[in-house]
């Protein structure tokens, strides 16, 4: 920038705009695109284009082998919407999301409230709860496949000690989704725990001091200060958790290898299987868009709920 620019003491939007005109809009525009170019190229190549091309593939009968590729209109979508396996997979994903989100939010809150009391051993608590989040899904799955082993696994040893009959955790279709939930809660609760911990640290001390002067007990402080103050964080954490749970694939796929997954196949696994095991790229792309529609609907629903809440308060 060689153009001399007068330097106002207080910068406002107006003065910024003035700078832009004095240096010349084309010059600044050119510089801007220079800054943006690397990201935009990657964004276009690896996000926008696949998104558009996927939509195109979903109306063809493209195969992984390279065969096919001719226009079939909405046939793939028609097939998907009448495919019982697709619906079952969608139901599995939604049910998993409901069952996993509740403990993942509540346990994280309890952990954060306890740790935030400032008890000794802060680093140890944080390490214990967050460490599993650092493990790769493969590692998590290996540990839990071993724990859930019906004959030698730790889960049944614990149940045995309590006098409860052993359970075929991963083999029994009535329980294996819940086994996945348990492993998932163990794996990822630390992330929500840290988010809650950060939110707790942002609550102003004065609120508690005022409450103490009014003689509010610990329970009263929790229900009338802490929890209401955490409400915005809770909404965000629930939102993020729902969107994360809907993407279930890794641990379900890895822990249930060799087990019939008809009742526990999440939708992402069905996308993978249709495309890469069944070679039907077109059909798989169509299911991807059904899944995407679900995500958008959930996202928009959450956003509206959040905004309405904000307008009310």
């Amino acid at each position: 920038m060689t153009a001399a620019v007068e330097r106002p003491l207080v910068r406002t939007a107006a003065s910024r705009a003035r700078t832009a005109t004095t240096t010349g809009p084309s010059r600044e525009g050119l510089v801007s695109w220079g800054f943006l170019a690397p990201f935009l190229v990657a964004f276009a190549l690896f996000l926008v284009w696949p998104l558009v091309h996927g939509l195109y593939l979903s109306v063809t009968n493209q195969s992984l082998t390279g065969a096919g590729g001719s226009w079939v209109g909405l046939d793939n979508y028609r097939e998907a919407l009448t495919d019982p396996t697709m619906w079952r997979a969608l139901r599995t994903t939604v049910w998993f999301t409901v069952v996993s989100t509740i403990p993942l939010v509540i346990l994280a809150l309890v952990m954060a409230l306890l740790v935030h009391r400032g008890l000794p051993g802060q680093w140890l608590w944080r390490l214990s709860f967050f460490m599993p989040f650092l493990l790769a899904s493969t590692v998590v799955s290996q540990i839990w496949v071993w724990i859930f082993n019906p004959d030698i696994g730790a889960a049944n040893s614990v149940l045995g000690a309590l006098g409860i009959e052993p359970i075929a955790w991963l083999q029994d279709p009535a329980v294996n989704l819940y086994a996945i939930v348990i492993a998932t809660v163990w794996w990822t609760v630390g992330f929500n725990f840290l988010l809650y911990l950060a939110a707790l640290q942002n609550i102003p001390d004065q609120l508690y001091e005022a409450a103490a002067i009014d003689g509010a007990g610990p329970w009263r402080r929790l229900t009338s200060i802490t929890l209401p103050q955490l409400w915005p964080a809770t909404i965000l954490i629930v939102m993020l958790q729902v969107l994360a749970s809907l993407k279930l694939f890794d641990q379900a796929y890895q822990m249930l290898i060799g087990v019939s997954t008809d009742t526990t196949r999440p939708i992402v696994q069905y996308i993978y299987e249709s495309g890469f095991v069944g070679y039907r790229f077109g059909y798989s792309a169509a299911i991807s868009y059904v899944f995407f529609a679900l995500i958008v609907v959930v996202g928009v629903f959450q956003m509206t709920a959040m905004n309405r809440r904000r307008n009310l308060s």
Binding site: L45, F46, L47, W49, P50, L51, H53, G54, L57, Q62, L243, L246, K247, F249, V268, I271, Y272, G275, F276, F281, S284, A285, S288, Y289, F291, F292, I295, V296, G299
Partner: peptide, 15 residues
């Protein structure tokens, strides 16, 4: 931000 990478695996693989 809302686009899940899982939705793109088919077209990305093709690319």
């Amino acid at each position: 931000i809302i686009i899940p990478p899982q939705v793109l695996i088919i077209p990305l693989f093709y690319e």
